[in-house]
Design a protein around this nucleic acid. Structure first.
Length: 287
DNA sequence: AGGCAGGTTCTTA
DNA sequence: TAAGAACCTGCC
């Protein structure tokens, strides 16, 4: 299907923003419609979320070609891309003269959106993320999916695409199988989280109703979840846009650029969006 | 070869 | 309550 998106929306920046680990650019000139028309310019991206698979490509200024049906777009991907929230309006809250660094970061990261990803998938992904770089995180997640997910598609080269494992499937993996996914010392965290969710002892959907402070408490009660991972889960898994995960990059920015403090009050309830701009900008070497 | 990567847990004072 | 060490693995 063809879609028009006028608000901030940049596939390359979203894919590289660090909030998602199964949203990648396709190597060669992947065709979406199947016709072998000359696909000029912009590359195709592949997004995998839960058991959904999407190919998407920018075809014009604000026009995009998606591999899904209009029905699947309306029931899933529209919400996934958070297309009902006005990100350019959020950017306009930044005062160029009063906060020049964030302004520059927001210009650099224009087009980033906070995807509405699944709490379960985000929990496992960010437990795995601790003390790993992004390629290593992605590699571990793909191994888990291949081991405990279902085949949901096939690439042009014949390789299979797998869904993210359900809690039940993941909880049934042995420790040696988990070790085979290069999880390192995180294997026990992943196993315990899968057991907790699969058994029903933890119900991540019920937690959607909790106030921020209670949600944070519950997350910190999980084995292998500390403050940073909990904040990532709150921002990316529960889409609470004021959460502000502090990792090494963000701490570096706060230390060097905001010695007198970041304007959290000013940017509420969208501090998490600002965090994404800062993270993306600093990680690109702009410090 | 040693250090480090989107941290958290465990141990010790 | 607060530092400091230990932790898997892969890649400079």
């Amino acid at each position: 299907m063809i879609l028009t998106i006028r608000d901030d929306f940049d596939l390359a920046r979203i894919a590289d923003s660090g909030q998602c680990f199964r949203f990648n650019v396709c190597d060669d000139q992947k065709e979406i419609s199947g016709e072998r028309g000359e696909s000029s310019g912009s590359p195709t991206y592949r997004a995998v979320a839960g058991d959904k698979l999407l190919y998407i490509r920018q075809t014009g200024g604000s026009e995009y070609e998606l591999s899904c049906s209009e029905d699947e777009y309306e029931t899933f991907w529209r919400e996934y891309f958070d297309l009902d929230l006005d990100y350019s309006g959020i950017r306009e809250r930044i005062d160029k003269s009063k906060d020049p660094y964030l302004f520059a970061a927001s210009e650099y990261g224009k087009g980033i959106r906070i995807l509405r990803q699944d709490p379960w998938e985000m929990l496992i992904s960010f437990i795995i993320s601790q003390r790993k770089n992004i390629p290593a995180i992605k590699a571990s997640i793909e191994k888990l999916c291949a081991l405990a997910g279902d085949k949901i598609g096939e690439e042009d080269d014949g390789s299979a695409v797998y869904s993210f494992p359900t809690p039940q499937r993941l909880s049934r993996l042995s420790m040696s199988e988990l070790a085979g996914c290069s999880l390192g010392y995180r294997d026990k965290y992943v196993h315990q989280a899968a057991m907790d969710v699969a058994s029903g002892a933890v119900n991540l959907d019920d937690w959607k109703a909790l106030p921020d402070s209670r949600l944070m408490e519950m997350l910190l009660g999980l084995y292998g979840v500390g403050v940073k991972v909990a904040n990532c889960e709150i921002l990316f898994g529960y889409h609470r846009l004021d959460a502000f995960p502090r990792d090494v990059w963000i701490n570096r920015v706060l230390d060097t650029r905001y010695p007198d403090g970041f304007l959290f009050d000013k940017y509420a309830p969208y501090n998490g969006v600002m965090q994404q701009y800062l993270f993306f900008y600093s990680r690109a070497g702009q410090l």
